[in-house]
Computed example of a mutant assay.
Amino acid sequence: MRSINIGLTDQQREGVIALLNKDLSNLYLVLVKTKKYHWDVVGPQFRTLHQLWEEQYETLTETIDACAERVRTLGGYPVGTMEGFLKMASIKEHSGDIPSATEMVARLVQDHEQIIRDLRDHVEQCSESFHDEGTADFLTGLMEQHEAMAWMLRSFVEGEAVRADGHSPSLNEKTAVGV
């Protein structure tokens, strides 16, 4: 890396770049999984999931570019091979099977929640260990995006009745209306 004078030491920037490359790897892997499920989904939920996943993979594509550009901004180079992504990612691919639509959603929820946990840890490391508030802020924004994606997917599989006041109906209310 060339000497960059932005108020961070080379070691701080290298630490942040390593975190960003892990995040980039997770983002790329969840993009591939989302696209694959977009192509393979069948059943009564086809149209809804097909459209939702198209929206999500378009957002992920923009996010991946922003993450790679953040790495470059700090003087590093983003990981850019499938081998590299698979080595650095904390989420795993599920090659060799085509699950049901509900299982596809459940797997993506797990992946987004893992990404959220990793981002939460990386935000703290960027701020506390590396004193890079700019990247901490950037990662906070990514975390919020993934929280929204996970919520949308989680809402799809939860399917529990909720009253207008936001609470779940009691057992008596459920049996009275046949829920």
Score class of each variant (00 low, 15 high):
Glu158Asp: 10
His38Met: 08
His131Lys: 14
Leu86Ile: 11
Gln51Asn: 07
Gln56Gly: 08
Thr175His: 15
Gly76Ser: 13
Gln110Leu: 10
Glu144Ser: 12
Asp132Cys: 12
Leu142Val: 09
Glu113Ala: 05
Arg117His: 11
Ala176Phe: 11
Ala68Gly: 06
Val157Ser: 00
Asp118Gly: 05
Ile4Thr: 10
Thr81Asn: 08
Pro44Ile: 14
Gln110Ser: 10
Glu128Arg: 11
Ile64Asp: 01
Gln51Gly: 14
Arg117Phe: 08
Asp111Val: 02
Asp97Gly: 12
Gly75Met: 09
Leu153Lys: 02
Asn21Met: 11
Met149Asn: 03
Ser170Gly: 12
Ile4Glu: 06
Thr135Tyr: 02
Glu93His: 07
Ala164Met: 09
Ser25Trp: 05
Thr140Tyr: 15
Arg13Lys: 13
Gly7Glu: 05
Leu86Thr: 07
Leu171Phe: 10
Glu69His: 09
Leu86His: 04
Ile98Glu: 12
Asn21Arg: 05
Gly159His: 00
His50Phe: 05
Arg154Met: 02
Gln125Gly: 06
His146Cys: 13
Phe138Thr: 00
Lys174Ile: 12
Leu60Pro: 00
Leu49Phe: 03
Gly166Trp: 09
Cys126Tyr: 01
Met149Phe: 13
Glu93Ser: 06
Met104Arg: 01
Asn26Phe: 05
Lys87Ile: 07
His112Met: 06
Thr73Gly: 08
Glu160Leu: 01
